[in-house]
């Protein structure tokens, strides 16, 4: 049931992308997201698509697996397409009562659909190829300069890694509780919304109780090992840049210049 949520779940295979330093992947993802917003015409999406295809190919994550994770946002995608299609002003080409489809509407709808799906695929490649631990390590190191202005970078990174770590634990727990209540005759596939919400009470109450219990246990365990924040803490595996990382940075900058060039030329 809930196991089907693949969005942002690490996919364990050996690949050049998996081996990259998390800072490179974070930076690359950021640049990719920015590039999607720089682009203002369809031609700009061609280099973006090429960049994405190369990244997917290199990552060795099957396309099917990535697409499966996209199912969660299908509703959002359709909503944005429909809104853009009917609510844009401009040259009307088809109308039904008060609903108008305009030329501009079709253009924006297509544009938004591509932008949104690239956004999701791009960021899920990062999470699919980087373990949560690595990701927060990268974030902590990459944003280390913010410590100067008193931003508690380590604490934020720690909170993030705990949150990420708990996602699979809690989905598994929710799955188990749902099954246990189903074994007691509970039904979750009701048509009426009120009934549906009501049927979730036997799942949500134990889930909250369990989340609090786990949080408590974790805090206790950290306390017992004298955890007291980031000051003076060292890492067992400190992040170090390698040759591949430099090449990846180069590729990212090249991609960015292509996108900017496309924007200026067309």
């Amino acid at each position: 049931m809930l196991r089907d949520i693949t969005l942002g779940q690490y996919y364990p295979v050996e690949s050049p992308i998996h081996r990259l330093d998390p800072r490179v992947k974070l930076f690359g993802t950021l640049i990719f997201l920015v590039s999607l917003f720089i682009t203002d015409n369809f031609i700009g999406y061609i280099p973006a698509m090429i960049f994405l295809i190369i990244a997917i190919r290199l990552s060795k994550v099957p396309l099917k697996y990535i697409v499966k994770g996209m199912r969660a946002i299908v509703f959002l995608l359709i909503l944005s397409v429909v809104c853009n299609l009917f609510l844009s002003q401009g040259e009307v080409i088809w109308s039904f009562r008060k609903l108008n489809i305009t030329k501009e509407g079709i253009r924006t709808a297509g544009f938004m659909a591509i932008r949104l799906s690239f956004l999701i695929v791009g960021s899920s490649i990062m999470t699919l190829t980087t373990t949560p631990n690595n990701l927060t390590d990268g974030m902590e190191k990459g944003l280390g300069f913010l410590k100067v202005i008193k931003v508690p970078v380590h604490e934020i990174a720690m909170m993030m890694s705990i949150a990420l770590r708990f996602i699979p634990i809690l989905t598994e727990e929710a799955d188990k509780i749902m099954k246990a209540q189903m074994a007691r005759g509970a039904e979750f596939e009701s048509k009426s919304l009120v009934k549906k919400v009501k049927s979730l009470v036997p799942v949500l109450v134990p889930l909250f109780v369990s989340a609090f219990r786990r949080a408590n246990d974790l805090a206790m365990a950290m306390e017992a090992r004298c955890y007291r924040g980031g000051d003076g803490r060292t890492k067992m595996k400190p992040l170090k840049y390698k040759k591949n990382d430099a090449m990846a940075y180069l590729a990212i900058f090249m991609y960015l210049s292509v996108i900017i060039a496309v924007r200026i030329i067309f």
Binding site: Q181, P202, P206
Partner: peptide
Amino acid sequence: KKLRGDVGLVFQYPEHQLF
């Protein structure tokens, strides 16, 4: 649904499912 009434399953740590 009827089967689940006839074959009662008590999960591991069933006390975690009380609500």
